[in-house]
Design a protein around this nucleic acid. Structure first.
Lengths: 68, 68
DNA sequence: ATATAATGTCAAGTTAACTTTGCATTTCGC
DNA sequence: GCGAAATGCAAAGTTAACTTGACATTATAT
């Protein structure tokens, strides 16, 4: 899934490791999310969005799902 | 995790099975979410919220996470 | 130029989301 | 009251999210 995590993280001058510490996951998890290797859990998605003062829908891109 | 799924589902006069069919999971999954047995995936959370015309944050209750 | 920080990646393991099957109990229309 | 529909529940299996550890590559600063 596409996300704005990398973009937001850089705007806030955070490393992947720092963001991981803040939201309670490892650096590798942040890498994987940024590179679209897998989709965050609901709770993790919320923590990330919340840290940037945004809603989940503003950080994660669900447009791929719209086609059905 | 607490959710408004059961409440919204009843308002819309849907059975658990019907809602499951709509969002692409089994009846048991809806039961489990409604009874808080486990937390929906991000994609499922989105599909459910979207079906009711709401945001994820309006359907799922993240207030338990706020205490940290 | 070289050290250090940051990132990409991969393999192996754990855990939680979700399925399938099946049965028991609770609604609810007639 | 009865049958059917809806719901609760549980065991066993699959899969995907996440961890740990380790190494390789890329950026950055001095």
């Amino acid at each position: 899934m596409k996300t704005r995590i990398a973009e937001l993280r850089k705007q806030h001058k955070l490393s992947q490791e720092e963001l991981g510490l803040i939201v309670g996951v490892t650096r590798q998890t942040i890498t994987s999310l940024e590179r679209g290797k897998y989709t965050a859990s609901l709770v993790l998605a919320y923590k990330i969005a919340r840290h940037f003062g945004l809603t989940i829908e503003e950080v994660f891109d669900f447009s791929e799902l719209e086609e059905l």
